[in-house]
Design a protein around this nucleic acid. Structure first.
Lengths: 360, 360
DNA sequence: TGAAAAAGTGTGCTCGAACACATTTTTTAA
DNA sequence: TTAAAAAATGTGTTCGAGCACACTTTTTCA
């Protein structure tokens, strides 16, 4: 270790001392300008000076003060979040909380976060909103890429304007995605299956129900279905059937579907719309069917608590946006790298541990 | 809205513009010193000036730049973490990772974090380590308060030296704890019980096994037991027995215990030592007993994957320390409030969702 | 009324990094 | 040998908040 002392520095933690560029300059016997040039490899440094500075840098553990760095290059950063309108689909409602928290928290650092909502049932609305955002020329966009083809196009346009794009919730291509925050949907399906297996008896029939899933975001639901089926394929002796339906058809057709499959003892709903099935089951007083679905919507939580839904899988949309925004902010302010792929844990929610996820 | 413009300010986002003290001073027609006095209520401001500044402050949404604020009052903060040696109990091993990550991340902000380990089986070691830490006079201590009486004493001493104390993992008093990061142990026991109920048949016998729990940290284990029993008390028709044992006695005595309780079909181990029971069950080729325990120790994860352990409850010690440290750092750097009580979600881990918690 | 005390106000420096620009040293070539 | 060009080095300003200190205005009271 170096044994030098600085006039202006009070050694509190001997070896763990925080060095500044000025300190390094003094130790190396050069000016802070030279140290700066060495640190940033800006050239214009003589071999002798380079050596002196590097000698010091090798001895100490210099970490630039990120507060000072970020303050110096103070800029106002603008991040837009593009996501479905939660009035059209309550699944997205928690995202809003996450965004509001991020707005509040990061405003003090000069980061301005702005949400933009589109209609998840209307591709045109998705395109329109993105066009509007593009015109604002923000520094970055955090996007829920619901529509495959249109997202590819808009991402290219953003790229032309040097706007960073991160995605959340839906993986655009299932592999090789960049800047993505979300969950592994295939695994999520497998987990649902493993839970189902624990709570129903052998040789039973299990239904996978996809509600209101048109071809657009069907790929995401299909991943879950694949995962679910893969689990049972490995153990056999279960009969898995898939039913695609519209929400308004449930009342008219679900009873027929149940009667057609007499051994039916488990239903896996691939989205947050599981409450519609639960409602039906409750009204018809069907007691032998176990239900697993997605997400902590108010209605879902109600049916979970009174035992009609047995398990919910938590996709944690709030954490997804918040984390996505955190990555972008850390990138702008502190030069942190944005993780190419951030897969959140897949939480299993029961009536008992539910409140530990909703508190605070 | 104000319609003024500043010579040196470029309006990017009309109303969402970031104001500085200088801006406010210009708008109010006073100097930044006066604005500063108003903001901090330092007095020495005339009624007229106060009014002018407040008029501006009411119109705009001033958020001080936390980077600048923190840079100005640059200090080196020293935080000590006092926790059990992970060589004595592998449960604490993930904490180390959390601490290492925090050290790395916060060093750039002038925060120096230092871990101190004590022997969890030796009260004297706990006292000794804390005494050592006290002499260092850090700004804060993050503590795993394993021993009740001794913790009370040491906390008082820290307080006398104006050292902030946060606790994690063990709640000192079950209610009214301050600066605590951890889980609700009672609830955790209930969750274990609810899972047990799903996977065993009615009228069965269930064993609660406490391994190596002497009177010191017994209170924490007792909370889990209480929660577990409370769940089954509500539904009856189950027979719950408790067995307290030493790890070295398992081989000699567990088989007797199992034979004494012929209907035994579920075991709840109240700590991370569940692998010792799993090992026994595997060796004796007992197949009808379901096992639920705690924490993602390597051995536990192995038995979870091969089906001997059915569920693990994740106490997330790594997240606990990391979060505890984050709270302290945010407090020192950005004047954020330290939450009095931060209860983490209680994660249910199965063979299927396990890897979503261990990745990244 | 006027000097002293009190109250109010403004200026300028600091934190550490970054970078523009000024100054000094070395190299080049006539 | 020397002037010009190039390279190397050092200096000073900025970011925004916070605070010490200097300066100005108002109030107090003999």
């Amino acid at each position: 270790m170096f044994e030098h002392t600085f006039s202006n520095v009070f050694f509190i933690f001997a070896s763990k001392m925080k060095y500044t560029i000025k300190n390094i300059a003094e130790l190396a016997g050069v000016s802070k300008g030279t140290v700066d040039r060495v640190l940033h490899e800006r050239g214009k440094v003589s071999a002798k000076a380079l050596e002196k500075v590097n000698a010091v840098l090798n001895e100490i553990d210099y970490k630039p003060n990120l507060l000072a760095r970020s303050l110096k290059k103070t800029r106002n950063y603008h991040i837009c979040v593009v996501l479905p309108d939660f009035n059209k689909d309550p699944y997205w409602s928690p995202c809003n909380e996450g965004i509001e928290e991020a707005i509040e928290e990061f405003a003090s650092f000069g980061v301005f976060i702005e949400p933009f909502f589109f209609n998840p049932n209307d591709i045109k609305s998705f395109i329109k909103v993105n066009k509007k955002v593009l015109e604002l020329l923000p520094n970055a966009v955090l996007l829920a890429p619901l529509f495959y083809k249109e997202t590819i196009e808009i991402i290219n346009k953003y790229a032309l304007s040097n706007i960073i794009v991160s995605k959340f919730n839906n993986q655009l291509e299932i592999n090789n995605t960049q800047n993505f925050v979300g969950q592994d949907l295939y695994k999520s399906g497998r987990i649902a299956a493993s839970l189902m297996k624990e709570i129903i008896s052998k040789n039973a029939t299990i239904a996978i129900i996809n509600i209101d899933e048109d071809s657009n975001n069907a790929i995401y639901v299909q991943e879950k279905e694949k995962g679910f089926r893969s689990f049972f394929n490995e153990i056999e002796s279960y009969n898995i059937v898939t039913w695609n339906c519209k929400q308004q058809d449930i009342d008219a057709k679900l009873l027929d579907f149940i009667n057609e499959n007499i051994a039916l003892s488990g239903i896996f709903v691939t989205t947050s719309k599981v409450y519609t099935i639960a409602e039906f089951i409750k009204n018809k007083k069907i007691e032998h069917i176990k239900v697993i679905g997605y997400d902590l919507l108010d209605e879902n939580m109600l049916y979970l608590k009174n035992g009609i839904i047995n398990f919910l899988i938590h996709q944690n949309p709030k954490k997804q946006v918040y984390l996505g925004l955190t990555y972008l902010v850390d990138y702008f302010l502190f030069d942190k790298e944005i993780p190419a792929k951030s897969l959140l844990p897949i939480d299993i929610i029961t009536a008992e541990n539910l409140e530990t996820y909703t508190e605070n």
